[in-house]
């Protein structure tokens, strides 16, 4: 039986320790530059500045002026694959390297099938897929489907301070000390997110009037399999307010059957023409300049 699953991220609980970023690297054996000053200085705690061929998850740091009389609003965001329910990347992937996992709804990556065409890069409304190696293989979050499928056990803090054993948890969720990340059935994660948003909006000390849930209703309700609690307005986290998969992605999907149909019709028509022409003969023609 399949249950749609989701990764839950609560930006208001995140302390930006980057444990998730490290756990992702460790579990997926993604290398980092190790030389002296090999990492580019970013003038920020955000490092690297964006996803790359070796980095599937980064924590975003955004510093904005506070409407209060003092301090700044410092927001911590998660930038990684959103695991769309109707992923444009999987629609355009010609090799089947990207597909929707039927059991969970996450976007599966099969690197051995990737041919490095980079079609997925153009179809992702979140600009997530990155590539590595000489043959340009796709690199993006897999929601640790390998851990999920093999029943990897983990002790996690579920956000209430209670540590419990949970199975099949992605590496990032497993490592999150403040319990800002959680993992479970999508419906439960959405309910948890709304509960948290209610709390953030109505708490007596430092309420967050702009708090919202992100990911449940995007793409005309289809949503994503990463559900976020955003403490500040959506734009603060560098996320698109209303992301859209380009209509050209659908058109590209039509091109294969259309081309096949057109080619088949042409071959059939020409075959018929060949059959009607069997036995065709004509006299040898001559031109006499003097008589014309």
């Amino acid at each position: 039986m399949s249950t749609e699953m989701a990764i839950y991220f609560d930006s208001s609980a995140c302390t930006a320790c980057k444990g998730c970023q490290c756990a992702c690297k460790c579990w997926n054996s993604l290398p980092s530059p190790l030389g002296l000053n090999a990492n580019e200085f970013t003038h920020s705690y955000q490092s690297p500045m964006d996803l790359n061929g070796n980095t599937r998850l980064i924590m975003r740091f955004e510093e904005n002026e506070s409407p209060k009389k003092w301090g700044v609003e410092w927001s911590f965001g998660r930038r990684s694959c959103m695991h769309c329910s109707n992923p444009g990347c999987a629609s355009v992937c010609p090799s089947g390297a990207l597909s929707v996992d039927e059991a969970t709804g996450f976007v599966r990556v099969e690197e051995d099938k990737c041919i490095g065409c980079r079609y997925c890069e153009t179809a992702c409304p979140f600009d997530v897929p990155r590539y590595y190696g000489p043959d340009s293989k796709v690199n993006k979050c897999t929601a640790c489907l390998d851990r999920q499928e093999n029943g990897r056990a983990a002790q996690i803090n579920n956000g209430t301070g209670v540590t419990q054993t949970q199975f099949n948890v992605p590496a990032c969720v497993h490592t999150c000390p403040p319990g800002a990340l959680d993992f479970g059935p999508r419906d439960e994660m959405i309910a948890k997110a709304y509960e948290r948003v209610e709390f953030l909006k109505n708490r007596e000390i430092d309420p967050s009037p702009h708090a919202s849930v992100y990911g449940d209703k995007l793409f005309d309700g289809a949503g994503t399999h990463v559900i976020m609690v955003l403490k500040y307005p959506v734009e603060t986290y560098g996320l698109p307010v209303d992301p859209k998969v380009s209509p050209m992605v659908d058109l590209l999907g039509w091109m294969k059957p259309l081309t096949g149909l057109a080619a088949a019709a042409t071959v059939a028509g020409l075959g018929l023409s060949f059959l009607t022409g069997i036995g065709y003969k004509r006299d040898t023609l001559h031109y006499d300049e003097k008589k014309h």
Binding site: A123, M248, L252, M255, L258, T259, A263, T266
Partner: peptide, 19 residues
């Protein structure tokens, strides 16, 4: 991404015509 998608579409359309 926008221009690349247009180019993908044109490439596929031209392939249909060539076929």
């Amino acid at each position: 991404a926008g221009l690349m998608l247009v180019m993908h579409l044109l490439h596929d359309l031209a392939f249909l015509m060539l076929a």
